[in-house]
Simulated assay, not measured.
Amino acid sequence: MARPRKNWPMPPEVPPAPFIVVGADYGPFLAAILEGLVSPTHGPLRIAPKGATPMKKALLVLVLACAALSAAAPPAHAQTTSATRARWYDVQRLQDDLAVLDDSLATVPTTHPRYREFQNRADALRSDLARLRDDMQRSGNSGDLAVSADEVNRLRTRIRELQNDIDTSLNRRWTGTGSVVLPEGTELTVRLERPLSSRTARVEDRVEATMARPVYVDGRMVVPAGARVLGTVTQAEPAQRPVRGGRVNISFDRLLLDDGTSVDFRSRVVQVKEDIVNSDTAKRGAIGAALGAVLGKVLGGTKGALIGILLGGAGGVITAQGDDVELPEGTVFTLQLERPATVLRR
């Protein structure tokens, strides 16, 4: 005998939320959503496009959800991210570039027709560099006040443009083709582009640097500042505390010029410094006494990083007293050619 079926009560019908009929153009309605258009009675409006299939409805809901999330997101602050923020090393490098510019300005005769122009441009560069340095000191780790890498690059470009204008006005640029020989004993001032440590370095590791100063032969610039210099680690020994400090030796042997040519040379390291600024540079009067203030110590740069570093031996081995050799980015090497090197220009 069949059991009687119970007549379960039907749930009350829920009235549908109000809907808007939207045609092919959803632009005005999206704009209304972004302006916060909602139903005062039912909250957010539900959309049911006329004749839309379930798939189209789902896609439309997804689009509107993304639009709502974008509208609800807080406005982005105009902060300088860590990826685009300038480092203290960048400011130190600008100071080195100004020191090189000082050398060039010192050779411009006071009777030169563009002497005053060059001096005024140098004054503006000093002021802008001092402002960048002060901004970085005030900002600390604040993203709102940090100096951007773009600001540093623009200032570096202006320094190079002034350097090029000075060389051109004095007819010191080598614009032709042919070859020039760098004599034995020529010194190259290069800046390390990546940190190097006797603790992690391995023999045959590649080392990259850039020319910190241009090289002149017979009054003509043969190698410009900024040219890439490549080298190789030929010796690397970590420290064995407290018995022996670390040791590292680098052989720089290749120069890459901006026209695509390369120069093979043989050199040894004869000096290691934190930067290329020295007391003689600051005392010379071409840029003026204000340069001395701008070329002061930079917090967070390589200042003090080379304390205890020794250079000795015929091969220019770099050692440290009881610790590993730590050469930070920006370390300046003076290289001396052990034999002539030929520079070809195409």
Rank of each mutant, 00 (worst) to 15 (best):
R228K: 15
A86Y: 06
A76L: 15
T342I: 12
D123K: 10
P11R: 12
H77A: 13
A71L: 03
I33W: 00
S198L: 09
D103I: 06
K6A: 09
R126G: 09
L105I: 07
P195K: 00
D128K: 15
A78E: 11
I309A: 13
V61N: 10
K50F: 11
P4I: 01
L69C: 08
G178V: 05
V147C: 03
A212D: 13
D218I: 02
V181H: 01
G315Q: 10
E161F: 07
P183Y: 02
I276H: 08
A149E: 09
W88G: 07
P238I: 02
G300C: 06
R121V: 12
L337M: 02
M10T: 12
V272T: 11
L295Y: 04
V63L: 15
Q271A: 14
R116E: 11
G143C: 03
G316A: 08
V147A: 06
A83N: 07
V38G: 01
S82I: 03
T168C: 01
H42Y: 12
S142W: 02
D323C: 05
G51E: 11
G43L: 09
L155S: 09
M136P: 01
R172T: 02
T175K: 06
I309S: 14
P9C: 02
S70G: 14
R228D: 14
V207D: 05
T111H: 11
Y26H: 14
V229H: 01
D96E: 14
T331L: 06
E204I: 00
D25K: 01
L129W: 03
W88T: 11
T186Y: 01
S148C: 09
A201L: 06
I159H: 05
R46F: 13
A341P: 12
N164R: 10
A130Y: 13
V298L: 10
K303L: 07
K6M: 14
T80Y: 03
G185A: 01
S127M: 10
E326M: 10
L145I: 04
A76W: 10
A314V: 08
T234F: 15
G226E: 02
R199P: 03
A149G: 08
K57V: 10
V152E: 10
A239S: 15
K283C: 04
T302C: 02
P49N: 06
P49I: 05
K283G: 09
R339G: 06
T189N: 01
R199M: 12
Y26M: 07
S104L: 11
P49Q: 08
A212P: 01
G313K: 10
K57S: 02
T107D: 05
V243E: 11
L192H: 00
S139I: 07
F265V: 08
P195H: 00
S262A: 10
S251P: 06
L291Y: 13
T41M: 02
K303G: 12
R154G: 05
Q79S: 03
I159C: 04
Q271I: 05
S82R: 09
I159W: 04
M221V: 09
Q321I: 07
R268T: 09
R114F: 05
F118S: 12
H112T: 14
W8T: 07
L295A: 15
T84F: 03
L257K: 04
S39I: 00
D218T: 07
R345Y: 03
V181E: 14
